[in-house]
Simulated assay, not measured.
Amino acid sequence: MGSPSFYSDRVNGAVPRVHEDLPFATSTGLEALVSRRINNNYLAEEFPSWCGDGYGIEGTDFSSIQPELLALVPEATWPLWENFHSDATLFDVSSLSDRNSPSLRTGNITRI
């Protein structure tokens, strides 16, 4: 199946498929993906915040993410995305969140 033919492609020509810089929409999409993983406790197993009774993980300990992130990706900021960052920094942070995101085991995380 061929790619769809959009009006703008017929009038303006096809959009280049290779970019030297990451498009803004792609950059903000990757930022949102990493932020969602952190905020939705996908990193809770690697950076656990323990329940008060000590018998389960209730979420992500955000304070324990910062030292590892800044050690491995020195150009990153915490909280994330507060300052300008390069595409390379975005890819490094994204890779780090992938590495530390085991599949969610809902039995180990107490949902509130």
Rank of each mutant, 00 (worst) to 15 (best):
P79C: 05
N39R: 13
G56L: 03
P67A: 05
E75H: 10
W78P: 08
L69D: 05
W78Y: 12
A44E: 09
N41W: 08
N41T: 01
S63D: 12
P79K: 03
T60R: 07
D87I: 03
W78M: 02
C51R: 11
D53K: 05
G56R: 13
I65S: 04
Q66C: 08
F47W: 08
E46V: 15
A44M: 09
T28N: 03
F84K: 14
P74A: 07
G29M: 14
Q66G: 05
V73D: 11
S94Y: 15
G56T: 02
L70S: 02
F62A: 01
S64W: 03
I57C: 02
Q66K: 14
E45G: 06
S64A: 07
H85P: 00
N40D: 10
C51H: 09
A76P: 11
F62N: 02
I38S: 01
L80W: 08
T77N: 14
N40H: 07
P79E: 01
W81Q: 01
S35A: 11
G59E: 07
E31A: 12
E45Y: 12
A44G: 10
N39A: 09
I57Y: 07
W50G: 00
Y55E: 13
E68I: 10
I65Q: 03
T89I: 04
L72I: 00
A88Q: 14
I38N: 06
